[in-house]
Design a protein around this nucleic acid. Structure first.
Lengths: 355, 355
DNA sequence: ATCGTCAAGTTAACCGATTAACCACGAGCT
DNA sequence: AGCTCGTGGTTAATCGGTTAACTTGACGAT
């Protein structure tokens, strides 16, 4: 505002506890005790220190504190993507829960690259996070993660994807049940020729998708039907789910005779794309083809027709993950590591117009 | 896997540089020089140190390093929301650009709370981030932020929202142009009775919305038309844009006679909701009411009808913000702070079926 | 008068990596 | 022999906050 008056006097010297101590003629320790209201400091001295500290604009150096106390009040979060609706909501839930408990988030995205993911684990441990919440990208590297956990006593919690072979706690949605719910719903509505729309990343199908498919087929089998036909494609670049769903469904419909009367997409984005392809083929939803998605994104109740979908309780997953991690942080000293805790949260079916 | 064999021998003692030094009978300094390939170390000793380090599973303590070097290779990111599509994509772009340049992200969400935002700035500075990228929530606190910048020489870059009164660099989308594009497009299509759909948070309208409205009205005025009617509502809780758009449009249409032949929504989510309300009122899009959104979210090309919208080049914003910040980090020593750099990135109109 | 106790501070040693400054030794030169 | 210089190291201080252990003086009890 006022360019003639510098915002702060060229204060090149750092305001640390020594600066405050010197100014008041006391020792650094006393300043520390006053600021942390812990040790024995007279009320008079304490209040002086407090005022001087705020006058000088003292700001504690958390790096120094953490170096000594071995606590950073920071939790590392590693996700395979940040832009998807699911991950975005998950991240917000994690941040919210963390902040609520006095922690902050150190974030990194692995972009579904298992090597990068491993690097990120190392990086986070080096930076001193108190714990890590990660959505593991692939299963191949569980061994390494497992070792890391044992190695430094930094608790880890997996979210979204489980790694059954590891000894690491996990909070995830019950994807098998989700797939089963979708199939049961479609069967109930009289559909018999069911398709499954999905995608793989660099040749890798995520375990969540596999579980959804297993649950889906389990329900079909229980009804005496053969497994669903899987329509999918592999993507390398970062194409959107919508585009993939559209492509996959378009080519499935191009064959001439419509091979199914219902499709289950492994996420809502794929479903949006599939729905457009169905419309463009002049077929009606749900009369000709029913569509069920997975996620229940905000938009799903508003597309045309409103999308029937399996709701993932993202919020709950995030909160549960943070709470689980925090429990470990409090228990701490080489605690008697019982069997890993595997929290499975139930998804629910949301019936709408598309089925 | 093999429970009888511990993953790592109960290695309670930390593996630090001293441990390596002792094991080889050299000094800590030599270890450091070997590891950082900087000082004078013979090839023989260096390779020994390297192997021993990896054998012992040495992992540098970056807290200690940062305390000494005053660099954390970390940039703080403060956003007002994490779950919205725009913020999610922005965050991914920031993370990607940061990682690409050897930095990592310390994340915190302000939840549109200016007080919390200020706390977060403090927290990040305390934790020693090298710079901060923030989407400022409100304009009231620019003064404080300005002071902080001058105070500790930690560079700050604003994204998304500008704070014209501050002396802080900013990368944002040109929202005025965005609004103008939307209006010009609708006028060109022969629409004359234009509505503007928006929402406020806890009574506060974000400056981006104001700019979009200004640009919109500017175009109307240039065409000799009166300003657009603004249809909006205030939200306190975290209701979705879709729900708000639906509510607002429903009540606008309830009046009986349709007061407009086109609406411009300040984001695509609002547009999705508005479109549903229009459909439910048995009006046709675009024949009866044309709809234009803002963002160009992934889903927008796939909803029915495909949504005409103003595309925000989120990717570019993120990359530009990181690069701008990095330039400051490299320039550093109390550099001659010229006028703040204000990068405005042009949005583009994406014509689709809804208009 | 003496000892114990306690409040109020102080000293100094960390935490682990970095870095300026210094040292020892051998080769090369005059 | 004496001097310089370069190589390959070492020592010790430092970053800023924390914490165990110690000091000092006052006061009460014995």
């Amino acid at each position: 505002m006022n360019p003639s008056k510098k915002p702060t006097p060229r204060n090149r010297t750092v305001v640390d506890m020594d600066a405050i101590a010197k100014k008041l003629g006391v020792s650094k320790t006393t300043v520390h005790y006053a600021l942390s209201r812990k040790g024995r400091v007279s009320e008079a001295v304490r209040s002086q220190i407090l005022t001087v500290a705020s006058e000088m604009g003292y700001r504690p150096n958390l790096l120094a504190r953490s170096l000594r106390t071995k606590r950073t009040q920071t939790i590392g979060v590693i996700l395979s993507s940040l832009s998807s609706s699911f991950h975005a909501h998950l991240l917000e839930a994690l941040d919210h829960a963390a902040q609520h408990n006095g922690y902050n988030i150190f974030l990194a995205c692995s972009y579904r690259d298992a090597d990068k993911e491993r690097e990120l684990f190392d990086m986070m441990l080096s930076k001193g996070v108190d714990g890590i919440i990660a959505a593991p990208t692939s299963n191949e590297q569980h061994q390494a993660v497992y070792t890391q956990l044992g190695g430094d006593g930094v608790p880890i919690v997996f979210v979204d994807r489980d790694v059954p072979e590891s000894h690491i706690d996990c909070v995830s949605v019950d994807n098998f049940v989700g797939g089963k719910l979708a199939a049961e719903h479609l069967l109930e509505a009289g559909r018999r020729r069911l398709g499954f729309v999905t995608m793989t990343h660099r040749g890798h199908q995520s375990s969540t998708v596999t579980e959804r498919l297993n649950g889906f087929n389990y329900a079909l089998q229980s009804a005496g039907l053969p497994p669903a036909t899987v329509w999918g494609t592999n993507v390398l670049n970062q194409s959107t789910g919508e585009a993939v769903g559209y492509e996959v469904m378009s080519s499935a419909l191009k064959s001439g005779d419509v091979p199914f009367d219902a499709v289950f997409a492994t996420n809502d984005n794929l479903a949006y794309g599939a729905m457009r392809a169905i419309r463009e083929a002049h077929l009606r939803i749900p009369q000709d083809i029913a569509v069920v998605g997975f996620d229940d994104q905000d938009a799903s109740a508003f597309v045309e027709p409103p999308l029937t979908t399996i709701r993932q309780p993202v919020q709950s997953v995030g909160v549960a993950a943070v709470e689980l991690l925090l429990r470990h942080l409090k228990a701490e000293p080489g605690s008697n590591r019982a069997d890993p805790e595997r929290l499975k949260i139930e998804p629910t079916l949301v019936r709408r117009g598309s089925s």
